[in-house]
């Protein structure tokens, strides 16, 4: 089995910060708004380089979304930055009416998603954001897997005309995608080709799924691992082609099972290619305080959970 080289270790939010700075250099219309979390969102680089294009919005996320809609109306490309919880659930109606329904070119950039936010606990650990955002007509929803991919995704959404939701996280995780990659919105990335099972994964679960595939290989199971960085629009063909080949599926995400990536994949398969599916995700519960590693283990989002899901899915073929 091919080894995946680890290029480093960093948080995906730093990839966002680097991507925002790069995108800002490419396009003078890009502006950034932050609700009192500039350091946490790694937006300091953009703020320092482009002080006149950075808007400190204070702890007022609803206003931030409306102001972003107004800036977009005036021809700017606004990137909003705050935690995922405050980027979605807290401001859902503002996004729905002033951004999504109004078709505004706003990039909603959301850090500290999922349980890997850690010790702050469930108030901040949103696990529903992908579902909330994917339900909005016209909204692009992206959850990249590492620093390099988050940087590339940030640059890519700047060049996409329309509202986007970009989700990333707090902890330092392995960097294993290329630094010079071109990010194609809606295009799945095959990491391992396999024949026994398809693992469709997103965000922090991509690295977990790679490790799971390596463990499965030692047991003689050939797992196909496909990184679905774009939850919407979904790469239907990549998913159907893989499921047709392997005949069983595992989905893996740091998100509620209800409304997440697995939910989208189940809809696709049920309509087009009924296939056994096992889902790795959070099952209708809130998170809690703990270290990211402890929480990923407790909420069954770890390598062993992907392995177990694969073994169960294979018995259902």
């Amino acid at each position: 089995m091919q080894t995946i080289e680890i290029l480093g270790n960093n948080d995906t939010r730093s990839g966002f910060g680097a991507g925002l700075l790069e995108a800002g250099k490419q396009n003078n219309n890009i502006v950034a708004l932050c609700a009192d979390l500039t350091g946490s969102l790694k937006m300091d680089g953009f703020k320092k380089e482009f002080p006149n294009r950075f808007y400190q919005m204070g702890i007022a996320e609803a206003n931030m979304m409306g102001v972003a809609a107004g800036l977009a109306t005036g021809g700017k490309i606004p990137f909003t930055g705050t935690f995922a919880n405050f980027s979605t659930g807290r401001v859902y109606d503002q996004i729905r009416q002033s951004i999504a329904y109004s078709g505004k070119n706003v990039k909603i950039c959301a850090s500290h998603a999922g349980v890997t936010l850690g010790e702050d606990g469930a108030t901040h650990q949103i696990l529903e954001d992908l579902g909330l955002m994917k339900m909005l007509p016209g909204m692009v929803v992206i959850n990249p897997c590492d620093y390099n991919q988050t940087k590339a995704a940030t640059i890519a959404i700047a060049n996409h005309d329309g509202p986007c939701y970009l989700r990333f996280g707090r902890p330092k995780v392995a960097i294993f995608t290329k630094p010079d990659q071109v990010f194609e919105i809606g295009k799945a990335v095959t990491i391992y080709e396999g024949t026994d099972v398809s693992i469709f994964c997103t965000g922090h679960l991509v690295w977990k799924s790679i490790q799971a595939a390596q463990a499965l290989a030692e047991k003689g199971i050939s797992a196909e691992v496909i990184n679905i960085h774009t939850i919407k629009p979904l790469d239907d063909q990549a998913i159907l082609n893989s499921a047709r080949k392997t005949k069983c599926v595992v989905t893996a995400e740091e998100h509620m099972i209800n409304g997440g990536l697995g939910d989208s994949i189940c809809q696709l398969l049920a309509r087009n290619l009924p296939t056994p599916v096992e889902m790795v995700g959070v099952n209708d519960t809130f998170g809690e305080s703990g270290t990211p590693d402890q929480l990923m283990a407790k909420y069954h989002l770890d390598v062993v959970d992907v392995v177990a899901a694969v073994e169960k899915a294979m018995t259902r073929k």
Binding site: G66, V67, A68, A69, G70, L71, G74, Q94, S98
Partner: peptide
């Protein structure tokens, strides 16, 4: 929501 949108338009101007 309109005042926020107006603020954004005013900033753009």
């Amino acid at each position: 929501q309109g005042l926020s949108v107006a603020v954004g338009l005013a900033l753009a101007k």
